[in-house]
């Protein structure tokens, strides 16, 4: 059973008076443990596809199953639960909550659950994940006291703390220098290899693409299996 399965997924939205057909019948699936990259030029529909897969947006028609559960037309609160329990997000701009320190940012997804685990358990897990991504010495720092690379590590820790089935990363290295980008990519590869975390990236960055075990190309709203020259 694939982790995610999209069948004939369409996404249309209004831009002024024009209907934009962002996804035009996408068929794709991702298996557990994959390290997949979605590439494509700007405006090709990468972000729309990731938004649909990340349950941040709803598809116009078609079918999207996450762990065999149909989530394409689920209501808002249920989607929030799906995101919280099954999906981790890593954003291009890190998107940390500025008033919370590292540990608090990491544990945030666990604390907002309707039935959260005991605070001590959450804190311990957050501390462990923070250490796993190399933030052990800065757990009480606020985001504005961290470097770009450290901030992205916090975002990775926050994405992993709920033990999600899937981690979506939207251009995770776009705002990082090459050294830090490589460190972040290595970290994600390690997590994929050691812990079996499934990653799905959207990126233009060839450094990310060359490490991907699978590359999907999106063009004009359609996804095709792409070749990875480096493998």
């Amino acid at each position: 059973m694939p982790l995610i399965q999209l069948k004939d997924v369409h996404k249309e939205y209004l831009l002024g008076e024009n209907v934009v057909h962002a996804l035009k019948g996408v068929d794709m699936s991702v298996e557990k443990g994959e390290f997949t990259v979605v590439t494509g030029p700007s405006g090709s529909g990468k972000s729309t596809l990731l938004n649909i897969i990340g349950c941040l947006d709803r598809l116009t028609r078609g079918s999207y199953k996450l762990e065999d559960q149909e989530v394409g037309q689920t209501d808002f609160d249920e989607l929030a639960d799906v995101r919280n329990h099954k999906i981790g997000f890593i954003f291009q701009s890190f998107n940390l909550i500025p008033v919370l320190d590292v540990l608090e940012n990491v544990e945030f997804p666990c604390l907002i659950r309707s039935k959260p685990e005991p605070r001590k358990v959450i804190r311990e897990r957050a501390r462990q994940v923070a250490e796993d991504v190399g933030l052990g010495s800065v757990v009480h720092h606020r985001p504005d006291q961290l470097s770009g690379g450290q901030r992205q590590r916090v975002a990775i820790a926050r994405a992993l703390v709920t033990h999600p089935s899937l981690v979506l990363a939207d251009e995770p290295t776009a705002n990082l220098d090459s050294v830090t980008s490589n460190q972040i990519i290595d970290l994600m590869l390690k997590l994929n290899a050691d812990k079996g975390v499934t990653f799905l990236f959207s990126t233009h960055d060839p450094r990310v693409t060359k490490h991907a075990r699978r590359v999907l190309s999106i063009s004009d709203g359609k996804v095709s299996e792409g070749a990875n020259d480096s493998h």
């Binding site: 990340g54 941040l56 808002f76 609160d77 929030a80 639960d81 995101r83 919280n84 329990h85 997000f89 954003f91 701009s93 998107n95 940390l96 909550i97 500025p98 945030f108 997804p109 907002i112 659950r113 309707s114 926050r158």
Partner: peptide
């Protein structure tokens, strides 16, 4: 707004 978007993305309910 963006911070609210992040909170929503990680599963915060309305």
């Amino acid at each position: 707004v963006r911070e609210i978007g992040t909170m929503l993305a990680v599963g915060t309910r309305r």
